[in-house]
């Protein structure tokens, strides 16, 4: 396990760029907490008026470079997806993260998020990478419940 497999330049860049950073009032934010390291992240998914498309991710939080980059990369790659598309996307991401290095994210499907593939070899860091995604799924459920 090489350290550079984990910390690709894209990750270090997104740790600083943090696309989607900044929460606006309203919506259905989800607060997620990682008790082992004390990291936290709050994320709100904004849907189109008909509830079918993800218009934006807004998030704030503090944590390691993996958790911050994962939130930023998700924002960059998944904004504009249909809800159904995002659900499949998140499922595939989770499967790869939990694969202990056996499933790599393809650049074709996951774009720059493929840079997070190396995380799955570092079991202790999978939770860091998943923090924003768990918040997104949770916020999505809360948002869609409000539409029904």
């Amino acid at each position: 396990m090489e350290l550079d497999d984990l910390y690709q330049q894209i990750i270090l860049d997104h740790n600083k760029r943090r696309a989607g950073y900044g929460l606006q009032p309203g919506g259905f934010p989800s607060h997620q907490y990682n008790p082992t390291c004390g990291d936290e992240l709050t994320l709100t998914v904004r849907l189109s008026d008909d509830g079918s498309t993800i218009r934006a991710f807004e998030w704030e939080g503090k944590g390691c470079s993996i958790s911050q980059a994962s939130a930023s990369l998700m924002t960059s790659e998944a904004t504009g997806m249909s809800v159904a598309e995002f659900e499949r996307f998140a499922e595939g991401f989770r499967d790869a993260m939990r694969s202990r290095g056996t499933i790599a994210l393809s650049e074709e499907d996951y774009g720059d998020l493929a840079a997070l593939s190396g995380v799955s070899k570092f079991v202790a860091r999978v939770k860091c990478a998943m923090l924003a995604w768990v918040a997104a799924e949770d916020s999505l459920i809360l948002t869609r419940e409000s539409l029904n």
Binding site: Y7, C37, R125
Partner: peptide, 10 residues
């Protein structure tokens, strides 16, 4: 500028 989790990993 570096989170402890990243420090520990390095």
């Amino acid at each position: 500028g570096v989170h402890p989790h990243d420090v520990g990993q390095y």
